[in-house]
């Protein structure tokens, strides 16, 4: 199954619609709730990043028997120092974003925590593509 969503830019009010829809579909497909939660949380963090930092973007999801694969792409400024961005607590978010309860520097670390495979393709000035893979037959952790 393939799903595609456009992620609107800089509007935190509606951010999370795509993740919410994907979660609903995963539940309807009868996928293991643990896998649904892993996919939903990591996609939600990536979607928020695309809204906050990337000026919006796209979400493309492939669901097959083995895995859920979620691509979130934006054409924002890219991540200058990925190693730093992966550290808990490091954030470049604005005060406005912090007032909304985000920008705590936990987005990428949370994605890494919940995804079975996390791939990040980013270049300064050329945007960011985050690929989250959740394996459907992963051993219980």
């Amino acid at each position: 199954m393939y799903l595609h969503y456009d992620i609107p830019s800089y509007d935190l009010t509606y951010a999370g619609e795509a993740s919410s829809n994907v979660k609903k579909i995963l539940v309807q497909l009868g996928i293991d709730p643990r896998c649904v939660k892993k996919a939903a949380i990591s996609m939600y963090e990536a979607e928020l990043n695309a809204v906050i930092h990337g000026g919006g973007g796209t979400a493309d999801i492939v669901i097959d028997r083995e895995k859920i694969k979620i691509d979130i792409s934006d054409s924002g400024p890219g991540i200058a120092d990925l190693d730093l961005a992966m550290q808990e607590g490091y954030s470049t978010a604005s005060d406005e974003i912090r007032e909304m309860g985000f920008g705590a520097g936990m987005g990428l670390p949370n994605m890494k925590r919940y995804a079975d495979i996390l791939e990040i393709d980013t270049k300064p000035g050329e945007g960011t593509k985050v690929t989250i893979t959740v394996m459907l037959n992963a051993p219980r952790t």
């Binding site: 919410s20 936990m106 949370n110």
Partner: peptide, 27 residues
Amino acid sequence: LMSDVMAFVKENVLLLTGLVSPQVIRT
């Protein structure tokens, strides 16, 4: 901080927050 909430793994959780935003419900 909603991202801190998302680092919290437990079942049947109650969330207490002083943040009022649709993202609280999304989280």
